[in-house]
Amino acid sequence: MAYTMDVNFLNPFIDGALQTLKVQCNVEARPGKMFRKGTEKSDVRVDIAGVIGITSDAFKGSISIGFPAATFLGIMGRMLGEKYETITKDVEDGAGELLNIIFGAAKRVLNEKGYALQKAIPSVITGQGIEVHHITSAPTIVIPFETELGLFQIEIGIEPV
């Protein structure tokens, strides 16, 4: 039987995303209705994504954050106080850093509950309309977010070890 992800595992990532966008980027975000990847079409066209592998004694998988280029550049502009027209080497690691901060906040909450998630260094992938594949046998959960600068989404795919 397929593993069903506990909503208590997801909530710290949602809270972490809202807090990170607000404090670090001065952007208010609102989470939308989460869904299993593949069951609905996402409204988010991902041009840049940060990805972190999730490892612990009990779970393995990955988490990603994906943005359309315009949303990402708007968020980076707010965070760094500059105007960006295109995704360049100068700003692309911001996708990984935002995810790193969100992951750090969620990890603290989850590890207090005994999940024992380990530290990880994020990677960034870019391309027009890319898709991140989370290599797990369990369904990947997609959490869309809406902001004044556009949409973005977080994907989480984990399964027990």
């Binding site: 807090q19 990170t20 607000k22 404090v23 670090q24 901060i101 992951f103 750090g104 906040a105 603290r108």
Partner: peptide, 26 residues
């Protein structure tokens, strides 16, 4: 740092860190 677990803060304090700021930060 984004690392905000108690054990990590303790490790940093024991290593004589001068200050510790958790991301996201102002």
């Amino acid at each position: 740092t984004a690392e905000s677990e108690k054990s990590q803060i303790v490790e940093a304090v024991q290593a004589a860190v001068s200050g510790y700021v958790v991301k996201p930060f102002t």
